[in-house]
Write a protein that binds this DNA or RNA. Sequence first.
DNA 1: CGAAAAACTGAGCATATTGCCCAGTTTTAT
DNA 2: ATAAAACTGGGCAATATGCTCAGTTTTTCG
Lengths: 157, 157
Amino acid sequence: MHAIDGTDTRLLTALAKDPRRTVVALAQKLGLSRNTVQARMAQLERMSVFLSFERRINPAALGYPLMAFISVHVQQQKLQQVADELSGIPEVIEAYGLAGQADLLMRVVAVDAEDLFRINGKILGIDGVERTDTSLAMGELVPFRVEPLLARGPRTP
Amino acid sequence: MHAIDGTDTRLLTALAKDPRRTVVALAQKLGLSRNTVQARMAQLERMSVFLSFERRINPAALGYPLMAFISVHVQQQKLQQVADELSGIPEVIEAYGLAGQADLLMRVVAVDAEDLFRINGKILGIDGVERTDTSLAMGELVPFRVEPLLARGPRTP
DNA sequence: CGAAAAACTGAGCATATTGCCCAGTTTTAT
DNA sequence: ATAAAACTGGGCAATATGCTCAGTTTTTCG
């Protein structure tokens, strides 16, 4: 067994609903033996189903209430260098290489508008960065969720 | 105490590093009493420092290896309706209202390119959606992290 | 500055959980 | 049909948890 099956998705759904639930309680809820839940959890862990705990930490609560998406046009063949420089800026919380209009899209958090301006300046100062477009996030219109995907059951990859 | 302080950031850092650590082990590591760690954790929970567990679930492992960012131009005064429609599409895992070039930016996952095309068609079919721009994510250049923010210690909000 | 409130400490208790082992049964893969 | 994988439920020892408590320390506020 190395693809996610219906029992795994049910387990993930239950976990998502109540992340602090004990293995015993999960087993009860799912009608499985405790050992099975343990074994399945261990397997999900091994399969890298779980991303970092950091994703659960709200930057706003850390003092960074502003969020922005900054797309960047990068000089040819300098993408990796730019990425390395970006990773040195603490407020850059993630960055993706893109196939599309821009070369790179990052998510940035900031203390306030001034801070954002400063960060943007920093990004513009990176060798290889040609142009940036900044879009301030005004609010979550669809809050993050994977529950609808889980509810559909497993997909054959 | 209702702002995050240095002890909280240290606690979050330790948690981020080892999410399955017991309260007893965390207390030991941080040189605090068990009760204090428990009390602090409870407070962080109350303060909504922790976002949903779902954010830790990797859509790729669920059978959605493709990710794309789709920006959308929306007809005036239809933003909320569009958002409601988007939330009915399971593959739309989050969407932000923007101040910038586009009105809305969403993150979409898909099984394959065909699936992505289908989803895009669905989005274009929503009343109020004028235009979309799709950028396929080719890879994480800066993987998600808030550790550098935590390492800086608390920020006064 | 002093008093009060908040936060921290360490001890303790009863109960629950965990990691792991085991042998038997059921399900899946070949 | 057979073998391997997965599941089951039982069990054990060690540890953790939720919670209480009284004393101490730190922070807040007038």
